[in-house]
């Protein structure tokens, strides 16, 4: 059985279609790049001014002046382009990013997202997250279902928000939800997991899709 992070990353990778411009956040979202099928070519965008990112370089072969938005050395694919931060955020805010995959501290049944601050405890700053959630055509939250057993999918976020009604899809190791006008809809369920299992660790109300499927990983 693969671990939770691998299940989440593999499933999120299936949302990426050929030709998409994609921005991956830090943590589990970064792992998504490892599971993009060979026949699917996507253009990975990085906030610091890159489109066409490739995999990490071999050890000792990296260029310290070529890093991603997390500061890690990366490579670029043939056809890549570099640009300044203003253009980078024009790409993001202007709707030119097809999908962004982000982590979350909390997400709620209205599609609100909190992922940048725990007041008094952790104040990293929002970086580019607030721009990504309003600008990307599709916002996918890829995260573990709970934090130390506590639900992260809530009726209403309690932490300061990153964006309001911005999340389109939530992928966890237990299942896949879509955020719709009617509320949260459980579309897929992980092998070996029951709806009851999910209800126990989900505070949000959700509808069970009439075509509920086993998660495709």
């Amino acid at each position: 059985m693969p671990d939770a992070k691998e299940i989440i990353a593999k499933r999120a990778a299936k949302e990426l279609k050929d030709g998409y411009v994609v921005n991956l956040g830090i943590g589990i979202p970064t792992l998504v790049a490892n599971y993009i099928p060979e026949e699917v070519e996507v253009f990975l965008q990085s906030e610091n001014g890159i489109i066409g990112m490739g995999p990490a370089p071999e050890p000792e072969k990296g260029d310290p002046n070529l890093v991603n938005a997390g500061g890690q050395m990366i490579t670029v694919k043939p056809g890549a382009a570099f640009f300044d931060s203003s253009l980078s955020f024009s790409i993001i805010r202007g709707g030119h990013v097809d999908v962004t995959v982000l982590g979350a501290l909390e997400v709620d049944q209205e599609g609100n997202l909190a992922n940048w601050i725990i007041p008094g405890k952790l104040v990293p700053g929002m970086g580019g997250a607030m721009d990504l959630v309003v600008g990307a055509r599709k916002v996918i939250v890829a995260m573990e279902h709970t934090a130390k057993g506590k639900p992260k999918i809530l009726k209403r976020c309690t932490l300061p928000l990153t964006g309001i009604r911005v999340v389109d899809m939530i992928i966890t190791e237990m299942g896949v939800f879509e955020v719709t006008d009617k509320g949260l809809v459980l579309k897929e369920i992980a092998p070996g997991t029951s709806v009851e299992d999910i209800k126990k660790v989900t505070e949000a109300d959700f509808i069970i899709d009439k075509n509920l499927r086993i998660m495709n990983i």
């Binding site: 300044d84 931060s85 980078s88 955020f89 607030m130 721009d131």
Partner: peptide, 19 residues
């Protein structure tokens, strides 16, 4: 330094900051 009030930090979304 921010918590100790030795420095003031104003956080601005990245795209807003550059724009």
């Amino acid at each position: 330094q921010m918590t100790a009030k030795e420095i003031e930090v104003e956080l601005v979304p990245q795209g807003t900051l550059v724009e």
